[in-house]
Simulated scan of single mutants.
Amino acid sequence: MDLLSIMATLVPRNEFRSFNAGEICKMVEKYYPEDFSLQDRYVLENQLNHFVLDISQDAELRKIGTITELCRCLVETSRHTAYNLVDRLLHLLVTLPVSTASAERAFSALKIIKTRLCSKMEDGFLSNSLFVYIEGGIVEKYVYDDIIQDFKNLKTRRADL
């Protein structure tokens, strides 16, 4: 919800109501620590403030109603180079629904794979089973005979008695 509220404050059509660069930088630090260094977060705060002033003064840009349109417009007007960190943040926010959907799909698959009967599965076997279930398109490319032959070629784990 925090990231969605950031998205709402950055849409120009909303006239940047409740915009707060410091709060956005705190959210960036919390949710995207690998994507923005400490120095990037300081620069991002300045870029956000300049960005809001710049966009507020342009009548055409104030009509933009979505983050996707804003990204496109930044590229078309070459503002994406001046506000490179804002552009990076916008791209991360645009991909938010995709990353959330893939995580939900994985947990849904986990619920199907790990039933009460299979609740004692070890992590490695569970991970492999989930991979086969989630990435079925990739697995279809493998030939079962090749997998069986690779398994046969493995050394025996037990000493023959």
Score class of each variant (00 low, 15 high):
residue 118 C to M: 14
residue 128 N to V: 00
residue 10 L to A: 03
residue 116 R to E: 12
residue 132 V to L: 14
residue 80 H to W: 11
residue 62 R to C: 00
residue 131 F to I: 08
residue 140 E to V: 12
residue 130 L to G: 01
residue 100 T to L: 15
residue 146 D to V: 03
residue 149 Q to V: 01
residue 8 A to E: 14
residue 46 N to Y: 06
residue 113 I to R: 03
residue 124 G to T: 07
residue 22 G to T: 04
residue 157 R to T: 07
residue 58 D to V: 07
residue 78 S to Q: 06
residue 64 I to V: 11
residue 92 L to I: 13
residue 42 Y to A: 09
residue 117 L to P: 06
residue 4 L to R: 12
residue 94 V to N: 01
residue 111 K to R: 15
residue 9 T to D: 08
residue 3 L to P: 04
residue 122 E to V: 07
residue 93 L to A: 04
residue 159 A to I: 13
residue 64 I to L: 15
residue 74 L to K: 02
residue 85 L to F: 13
residue 29 E to K: 07
residue 109 A to G: 07
residue 10 L to M: 12
residue 128 N to P: 00
residue 130 L to C: 05
residue 101 A to V: 11
residue 10 L to G: 00
residue 66 T to C: 08
residue 43 V to C: 10
residue 132 V to S: 10
residue 72 R to S: 14
residue 7 M to W: 02
residue 161 L to W: 04
residue 100 T to W: 14
residue 37 S to P: 07
residue 74 L to T: 00
residue 136 G to V: 07
residue 86 V to F: 02
residue 34 E to V: 02
residue 157 R to L: 15
residue 22 G to I: 00
residue 96 L to T: 06
residue 157 R to A: 11
residue 106 A to Y: 02
residue 137 G to V: 08
residue 83 Y to I: 06
residue 146 D to P: 03
residue 26 K to A: 08
residue 149 Q to S: 10
residue 66 T to Q: 09
residue 3 L to D: 03
residue 107 F to W: 12
residue 4 L to Q: 08
residue 77 T to S: 14
residue 75 V to A: 15
residue 29 E to S: 11
residue 70 L to P: 01
residue 63 K to R: 14
residue 95 T to C: 06
residue 78 S to L: 09
residue 157 R to F: 13
residue 108 S to W: 10
residue 137 G to Q: 09
residue 15 E to A: 09
residue 144 Y to M: 03
residue 32 Y to M: 00
residue 157 R to M: 11
residue 65 G to M: 05
residue 101 A to Y: 10
residue 17 R to D: 07
residue 139 V to F: 11
residue 137 G to M: 09
residue 29 E to T: 05
residue 16 F to M: 00
residue 8 A to G: 04
residue 25 C to H: 03
residue 84 N to S: 10
residue 6 I to K: 01
residue 95 T to Y: 06
residue 140 E to W: 03
residue 30 K to L: 10
residue 92 L to M: 09
residue 121 M to Y: 15
residue 48 L to M: 03
residue 121 M to K: 06
residue 155 K to G: 00
residue 105 R to S: 05
residue 64 I to S: 02
residue 57 Q to C: 12
residue 16 F to N: 03
residue 7 M to Y: 07
residue 52 V to D: 01
residue 30 K to V: 03
residue 61 L to S: 06
residue 75 V to D: 11
residue 154 L to E: 15
residue 55 I to C: 02
residue 118 C to Y: 14
residue 63 K to H: 09
residue 87 D to N: 10
residue 45 E to K: 06
residue 118 C to Q: 15
residue 131 F to M: 06
residue 75 V to Y: 03
residue 134 I to Y: 09
residue 91 H to E: 08
residue 112 I to Q: 13
residue 139 V to D: 08
residue 21 A to Y: 01
residue 87 D to H: 11
residue 75 V to N: 10
residue 84 N to H: 15
residue 3 L to W: 03
residue 133 Y to D: 04
residue 59 A to I: 09
residue 141 K to C: 12
residue 51 F to I: 04
residue 146 D to Q: 08
residue 90 L to S: 08
residue 45 E to H: 01
residue 105 R to E: 07
residue 114 K to G: 13
residue 118 C to A: 14
residue 95 T to S: 15
residue 106 A to W: 05
residue 60 E to M: 08
residue 27 M to D: 03
residue 82 A to Q: 13
